[in-house]
């Protein structure tokens, strides 16, 4: 089965790459580019988060903080201290990863869902720091004047150029995630979700794997945050509050826990929906909450995976019926 999956995933990746290259030829509206870029950034966060939630079965409500750390570290180091942007993105990823390790390791060692509260508490602390350390972060009014990214003399200074930049990163994030989930490590993560005790008795160091995938997901979020900062050139604490974490989690659930492509779909659908709701921002909280609840109650596999499983069951059913067998669910 593995080689077959591999082929199918490769095909998807090629189609996806072609779409990234071709789509800008048909889009002329600047606003549409902006929405697509935000979709891309959210996709990076959500793919990482899905590795943690969907594949490994651990909950984090703190990814807004890691997203924000990427953004603020990039902003502060480049705009305030004049560091070169590209190495700073890597530096931010390393720092965020280390911080994630210290938040994640102690809570992931424990049985039960301590991670969700530890991450939530952590993200509130980070948010308070963003607001209160105003001499460094600009406080509640935000941090302006972050430089655009550039390669040589080529500056990524508009929505169109940033589209290619951001979606190239999305592509590579999806690529490495697909690699990961179809590997020894990916299977170990799914096994932890299936039964942590059984996974452990098969030789999987469950604490280590949970911590590592948590750190990886934080690093993804940090990367997205850095790209966001250099793209918009202005950041403020509002973009990285508790609601962003809820949004990211909802995207994971809607796309489907345990599906890399589902993450992309979830991020796309809900980002566009958010843009529609932008006119009435106060409905945003209700909308996300209601979507999250409804999908979980009625379609816990998520929309993409739910329909895919439905299709697969139908296919198996027809296969069995063709052979004259009986199908039980």
């Amino acid at each position: 089965m593995a080689p077959f999956t591999r082929k199918k995933e490769t095909l998807f990746l090629i189609i996806f790459a072609l779409a990234i290259i071709l789509i800008p030829l048909f889009v002329k509206n600047k606003y549409h580019f902006m929405v697509m870029n935000i979709v891309g950034l959210n996709t990076i966060v959500v793919i990482g988060l899905n590795l943690l939630i969907g594949f490994t079965g651990q909950i984090s409500l703190g990814h807004a903080a890691f997203y924000g750390m990427g953004a603020y570290l990039s902003a502060i180091f480049t705009a305030t201290f004049g560091f070169p942007p590209w190495p700073t993105i890597v530096l931010a990823m390393i720092i965020t990863g280390m911080v994630a390790y210290f938040v994640g390791y102690p809570s992931l060692k424990l049985k039960g869902h301590y991670l969700v509260m530890a991450t939530l508490g952590f993200s509130i602390i980070v948010h308070i720091f963003m607001v209160e350390l105003d001499r460094i972060t600009g406080g509640p009014s935000g941090f302006p004047g972050i430089p655009h990214l550039s390669i040589g003399a080529f500056v990524f200074d508009n929505d169109f150029k940033n589209f290619y930049l951001i979606w190239t990163f999305v592509f590579f994030c999806i690529l490495v995630s697909v690699n990961l989930v179809n590997s020894r490590v990916g299977r170990a993560l799914k096994a932890i979700h299936g039964s942590e005790v059984a996974a452990n008795t098969l030789g999987i160091d469950t604490d280590k794997y949970k911590t590592k995938v948590f750190v990886l997901s934080a690093v993804f979020a940090s990367l997205a945050g850095s790209l966001y900062a250099h793209y918009i050139t202005f950041i403020s604490p509002r973009s990285f509050d508790f609601y962003y974490s809820i949004q990211a989690v909802t995207m994971v659930i809607v796309g489907g826990m345990g599906s890399v492509w589902g993450a992309f779909f979830g991020a796309g659908l809900l980002t566009v929906l958010s843009e529609f709701l932008h006119v009435a921002e106060k409905y945003n909280i209700i909308a996300y909450g209601a979507i999250l609840t409804l999908v979980l109650v009625f379609l816990p596999e998520g929309i993409v995976v739910g329909f895919y499983n439905f299709y697969r069951r139908r296919k198996i059913k027809s296969m069995i019926e063709k052979r004259g067998g009986e199908f039980r669910v």
Partner: peptide, 21 residues
Amino acid sequence: QVFHNMTVLENVMVGLHTQTE
């Protein structure tokens, strides 16, 4: 304690965890 979220083959492949690195 079969891993219900995985295929039959994948279950056995997880069993090979100690045999791989």
